[in-house]
Amino acid sequence: MSAEQSGTQPILLEQDVVRARQLARTLAQGCGMSLINLTKLVTAVSELARNAVVYGGGGHMDWQVVEKDHRKGLRLTFRDEGPGIPDIKLAMTDGWTSGGGLGLGLTGAKRLVDEFELDTAPGAGTRVTILRWA
């Protein structure tokens, strides 16, 4: 058993996106995640961490190792105090972007994980929680 089962990592700058990816990779390896699932999770982390930096003006990534029926998983929450997303339905459409990207960040990340929850409102920041089982 590792001593730490949860924690928080700041994502303020662009370089922090790389750090968030590396942390997620280490944690996922600790959960015994297969290479494919690990790659999917790390890619989702990259998308969401970048969103927090680019659109949210920086934020935090909360991480938590969870266990159910002898199966480990990683739950990550990306939160920022940015402008929020006015139209969730539109934001969850493939190819839609407000920042000149490919518009695959949110929808793509959702496809890469087992659970995905988006909580946002204009002016109230954005919270995205994802979970991937090992």
Binding site: I36, L38, T39, K40, E47, D94, G108, R111
Partner: peptide, 14 residues
């Protein structure tokens, strides 16, 4: 491109 990367990219929609 590694297999895991290719599978992830396709799932991502890219």
């Amino acid at each position: 491109m590694q297999p895991a990367v290719a599978i992830t990219l396709v799932e991502l929609g890219l």
